[in-house]
Computed example of a mutant assay.
Amino acid sequence: MSSPQQARAQASAITSGRTAAEAGPAPTSQLRQLFDGPRLSPGQRRIAQYLIENITEAAFLSITDLAERVGVSQPSVTRFASAMGFSGYPALREKLQSIALSTLAGAPGAPAEDQGNELQSAVDAEIENLENLRRDFGDPDQVIRIGRALSLSTPLTVLGLRISCSLAEYFAYAARRIHPDVRLVTRGGSVAYDAILQSREAGGSWMLAFAMPRHAQETLTAVRVARSAGLKVALVTDLALGPLKDEADAAFVVGTGSRLVFDSYAAPVVMSAALLQAMTDADPERTQARLEDYEQIAEEHQFFLKD
């Protein structure tokens, strides 16, 4: 089993006699570009994080040693290599070694990459997602139009399965303050079908669905059930292409943060708040009346702590 000292020695031996590499993207940037392409599972992201943080050693580890360092199985490392588009771990390791060597053979005195740590990098990625969303809001017509349609749908169905459940719960919680009948669906299968069909029979016309990675097959099925029942579907997702977007009557594509083991959802939450704002603006009198009634009840029953 290779030790860190042995890995460094091997790296030094390989780089012995090499001339300084030409200036190019910093190794950390190269790795992030490599890993940002495919959609990785949480377990695979652990491997990616370890490689980013320990590239000069990890690039020369055997598959057994790498799996042990990360705390995953050898097949997990093999699947990670396949997910990255490589024929296997040896091909991935060859690519990693070329990146590592650019670090070890860099020109003396070259400025170190100032990219911050992994948590700061995750925040930077979310800032980029929010900047993209801000540009999309330059033309708010679709948000306003769909917000009005959701406001008019009584009842209004909100769907969010698996990881998307939290976004659906946030939206539904707020929407209930301004809408008389919001029906939240967070369980798939026949339970979801019953709720969707009952909502349509009660007069509903729209369903808002959240679909974030990893995208559940049951979400696609539920969307198709809603469409077949006569409901129109508005979709908040990170997918610019695919069957989910194809099935929706309206789609809002927003980026998710994928730099950490589990995704973060700054942009989808802002999109949800924008749709809620559009719903309030669609019927300001109803909104004001319901908010005042709720505040009265909250005060009477002391729902909240005093500031």
Rank of each mutant, 00 (worst) to 15 (best):
E128A: 15
R135T: 09
S205V: 04
V233R: 05
V77F: 09
L159I: 09
M279F: 00
L167M: 03
V158Y: 01
E300A: 14
Y294I: 07
A209G: 05
E22A: 15
T287Q: 08
A222Q: 06
A105S: 11
Q5Y: 09
E201N: 11
A110I: 09
T103A: 15
S151I: 02
P25F: 10
Q198H: 10
G242A: 06
R176P: 02
P140G: 10
E218S: 15
Q6E: 15
V143C: 07
L244F: 05
P180M: 13
E131T: 11
L159P: 00
A234I: 05
L34T: 06
D246I: 04
A175H: 04
Q44N: 06
R39D: 07
E57A: 06
Q198R: 12
H215R: 02
P38K: 01
T78I: 08
S62M: 03
V261H: 05
E300R: 15
L275A: 01
G188P: 02
V77G: 07
A83S: 03
G147M: 03
A234W: 07
L184C: 02
I127Q: 11
Y294F: 14
R224I: 02
A266K: 00
T186D: 05
R46W: 07
R18Y: 12
L244N: 00
S272I: 00
R145T: 08
Q115W: 13
P180T: 12
G17C: 04
R200Q: 14
M212V: 12
S102G: 15
R290Q: 14
N117R: 09
D141G: 14
V182G: 05
L101Q: 11
G189W: 09
F137H: 11
A11R: 13
P27M: 01
S205D: 04
T186Y: 02
P284K: 07
